[in-house]
Nucleic acid binder design. Structure first.
Lengths: 238, 238
DNA sequence: ACCTGAACACCGTTCAAGT
DNA sequence: ACCTGAACACCGTTCAAGT
C-alpha cells in the first residue's frame, strides 16, 4: 500500500524499543544474563552497538524492559487460566501464582533479575499485583491482611522463590563424594540426616529436591495460614 | 620474641585472605557492592590491585568470602542468643532467624549477594543450616517436614526476605504524586486501596511498610503452619 | 531521523619482572 | 615468597560525523 520504504511494509523490520527488548530476552534465554552485552545484543539485531542507544537510554533500561516482557507474558498467561466457577480465593490465587511460575521456567534468568533490580513499579508488574490483590479482597481478606499477605508471599507472589539449595553441577564429582559424605556426616549431622531421608523418598543424593512440590508446599503453607487468619481474628499475626 | 620481621609482631599487618575479605566487606558497607572493584579494594589496603591475586583466586572468591564473613557474624550472634529454658522449637527458630536478620541490617548488600551467588555450600552456611535443622528436629518435626520447612522458609531461614516493595527514593517527588495518585487509583484500584489502608495505620503513603513487622508476620505464618502439620498428619502439604 | 566508527574511561586478569 | 608495572581483552557509553 504505502510507497515509501519503511512505512508499513518494512523490508527488514526497523529497529524499535520493542524489538531490542525481545532480542535481549532471546539472548538471555540462550546464553544467560551474563551473555547479554550491548555489543552482543546489537550483533543479534544485525546492527552496530551504538544504534541501540536511539531506542533505549542505557543498559539499565534494557534490563528493566526485559523484566517487563517476562511479566507481560505472565499477565497474558494468567488471564487465560480459567477458574472453576465456585472456586475459593485460595484456588484462584494458587492458580495465578503457579501460572506465573510456569513462565519463569522459560526464562531462568528472570527471577534473579527481578530481585536484583526492584522493578516493582512498572505498569506491567503493578497490573499483575493489582489482579492478585483483587482476588484476595474478593475472597474476603481485609485490606490489612492482603497487605501482609503480599509481604508474606514475597517473590512467591510473582511465581518464584530463591532456591537456596540450587543444583550444584560440581557436586556430582563422585571421587570427592565419598570423603565429603563422611566429613559432612561428622560436621553437619542434621543436614546429613535430612538429605538421607529426602533421597530415600525419591531421586538420588544430589539434585534431590522436587522444586515444583516444594514451591507448592510453601505456597500452600502461606495460603492456608492466611485463610485461617481470615476466618478468625484477622489482621495481626500469631 | 621472633627476630625476623613479619613473624609475629608485624609492623603493618601483612596482607592475607582474611584481611582482604574484611576490607571488601568494609568497602561494600560504605559504598555498596557496586563500589567494590579489585582496584578500589587494593587501594583500601594500601597495595596494588594485582597483589590481591596472591591471596584470592579471583573476584568471585572475594564475593563468596564476603558472604562467609557475614554468615560467620550470624553464627556468632546466634550462638549468643539465650533461649528461655522451656522454650518450644518455634521460639528457638524464631530467635535464631531474627538474630540473623539483625546482622543483615549492618550489611544491606548481603542478601542480594547471597542470592546472586548460591553460596549455600560453604562450611559457614552449612553450620548455620545444621543448627537450624537441629532445633526443628529436636522440636519433634520429622526429617521430611524439616526438609520442606527449609524450602518454605527459603531466604527467611537466613534472616532476610527479598523486599519486592523496596523504598523508592524517586517516589517522594510530590509534583508527580498528585497526577500519579489519580492515575494509580484508576488503573490499579486494589493496590491503591491497600496502600490507603496501610498508610492510615501508620506512616505516610510512601515508605509505608514496617519491614520488621512484615518479616515477623511472614515468619510466624510459616512457623505456625509447620507446627500445625507437626501435630496432625505430618509430612505432606495441604 | 537514524545509524556509524573511533575513542574514552573503566573493568578483571595475565605476564614478565622486580626485591 | 610476595609484590609490582605495563599490558590485554573486554565492558558501557560519548561524540562527531556520516546518510
Amino acid at each position: 500500500m504505502a510507497g515509501r520504504a519503511g512505512a508499513g511494509t518494512a523490508r527488514r523490520p526497523a529497529l524499535s524499543r520493542d524489538r531490542v527488548l525481545r532480542a535481549a530476552v532471546g539472548v538471555a534465554d540462550e546464553g544467560g544474563i551474563a551473555a547479554l552485552t550491548m555489543r552482543r545484543l546489537a550483533q543479534e539485531l544485525g546492527v552496530e552497538a551504538m544504534s541501540l542507544y536511539h531506542h533505549v537510554a542505557d543498559k539499565d533500561e534494557v534490563l528493566d524492559g526485559m523484566v517487563d516482557v517476562v511479566v507481560g507474558e505472565i499477565n497474558a498467561r494468567v488471564s487465560q487460566v480459567d477458574v472453576p466457577d465456585g472456586a475459593g480465593w485460595k484456588t484462584i490465587v494458587r492458580g495465578r501464582v503457579l501460572a506465573a511460575r510456569d513462565v519463569h521456567l522459560d526464562h531462568p534468568w528472570a527471577p534473579a533479575l527481578i530481585e536484583a533490580r526492584n522493578t516493582t513499579m512498572s505498569p506491567t508488574v503493578l497490573r499483575y499485583f493489582d489482579g492478585l490483590m483483587a482476588d484476595m479482597l474478593a475472597g474476603g481478606l481485609s485490606a490489612d491482611l492482603v497487605h501482609h499477605a503480599m509481604h508474606a508471599l514475597g517473590s512467591r507472589a510473582l511465581g518464584f522463590s530463591q532456591e537456596l539449595f540450587e543444583e550444584n553441577d560440581e557436586a556430582s564429582d563422585s571421587q570427592v563424594d565419598a570423603i565429603m559424605q563422611q566429613r559432612m556426616a561428622d560436621e553437619y549431622p542434621h543436614i546429613t540426616q535430612i538429605v538421607m531421608v529426602a533421597s530415600h523418598n525419591g531421586e538420588d543424593t544430589l539434585g534431590w529436591c522436587d522444586d515444583q512440590f516444594e514451591f507448592e508446599f510453601g505456597l500452600d503453607l502461606i495460603l492456608d495460614g492466611l485463610e485461617q487468619l481470615r476466618t478468625t481474628a484477622e489482621g495481626g499475626a500469631a
